[in-house]
Write a protein that binds this DNA or RNA. Structure first.
Lengths: 220, 220
DNA sequence: GGATGGTTTAACCATGCGGTTAATATCGGC
DNA sequence: GCCGATATTAACCGCATGGTTAAACCATCC
């Protein structure tokens, strides 16, 4: 635990916010991520996070002050992991929409498959505490960059390649198709009678289908 | 409050499960629905439900035994409201897919618009307690009726009208497109810079767009 | 080797909350 | 008008949980 002391340590001003040991800090963050994503913030116990991190409960408070602050950190981190994977690709001016959509589909199906609780967690938190995203978006990034995709959609429409569709609808459709099935996986499996292998088959099918389905939906 | 006594009352066996006054029972259910959908089961307090129902907290337990049981009741009720609206239409053998899709789109956008917390609540609960839906589906209905839609998709594909697509993918796509934006509304509004009027404009646009988008996606 | 200051822990505290209980209110039947 | 049942309440209980505290720990510097 005892790391070679924070490198950003200046000698004169006696620091106010303790930077604290980065290693244990990360251990707690990782533990919190596991617990929070699995159970949601409200049903998670700081004690369980501490245990998961192999650390005393008080230490969690030492590093993050309050459960809510820790929850914020985890949520912000999750958001920061997810959004660039979608909007990073969408904002690329050097790739056509026909290239971007399959790329995002592949990327997201891989990403979400590897993190079974991620989508459900995100949606749940969004619903449980809608103000949080306002707060967070204000602090960091801000709006999402839609100009590239807007331009590409407009040009495609002018060329008769696409139907007239706003980038907002485009994004809503894409995210709905990609994320929703993961967010409600247990229900979907029960509803459709999927066991785990059939779920994976479903995802494989989806990987092939979605790009065509989505692009066909774009055409007039 | 005091209703003309339960009609199902038999005189001999001293009833085990109290049928209890239907009117207050419903008042509690309605109150619980409001609180649970707004805050989610985990963050809701029985006290708040009681207050919302204008009733003593103990009475909630008198009627439903435990918070979890009440939560189950509310969730089952919500599921029973949502599913038939989608699968009732889908299972109709007398309407073509071209008729069903726009009907469901209209219906769902109206339904969800009138219940801003519904979608988020459903997804959250699904994520928080995945076993619940297993339990519930076993008790009531069971699987979802996909045969009609399967037949229609197959015939459409044979006629060259549709791409080859399984009813499972069909349903996943439809639900994702319809429900997801409502489930993450706060995030979507923040992300896309929507205020309330623009959100409604977005929904209007969506009402027009989705049937075409979806049907175009089906075509080969 | 001891003073200093960040790190970690065991023990503790206050309280919010789910659930229970025992007493009261209300009504239908006689 | 009283009886037996159900309906409703105020008061209470136990405990889990978020958060605090005071002490121990352990590097590092002089």
């Amino acid at each position: 635990m005892v790391k070679p002391s924070s490198s950003t340590r200046r000698s004169k001003p006696p620091r106010v916010t303790p930077p604290a040991d980065q290693e244990t800090r990360d251990r707690i963050l990782d533990a919190a991520h596991i617990v929070f994503t699995r159970k949601g913030t409200a049903s998670s116990r700081t004690q369980e996070i501490a245990a998961q991190a192999g650390v005393n409960k008080a230490l969690v408070h030492y590093y993050f002050g309050t459960k809510a602050a820790l929850a914020d950190a985890i949520f912000a981190r999750a958001l920061g992991t997810l959004m660039p994977r979608i909007f990073g690709i969408l904002a690329d001016p050097d790739r056509s929409i026909e290239e971007k959509v399959p790329a995002i589909v592949r990327e997201q199906i891989d990403f979400q498959s590897a993190r079974p609780y991620f989508a459900g967690y995100m949606v749940s938190e969004l619903h449980a505490e809608p103000e949080r995203i306002t707060r967070l978006m204000a602090r960091q990034g801000g709006r999402v960059p839609l100009d590239v995709i807007r331009r590409q959609l407009r040009e495609g429409a002018r060329a008769g390649k696409f139907r007239r569709i706003s980038p907002e609808q485009f994004v809503a459709n894409l995210m709905g198709l990609l994320i929703f099935p993961f967010a409600i996986r247990p229900a979907l499996c029960e509803l459709l009678g999927f066991d785990t292998p059939r779920w994976h088959a479903f995802l494989e099918e989806r990987r092939r289908l979605l790009p065509d389905f989505f692009m066909a939906g774009l055409r007039p």
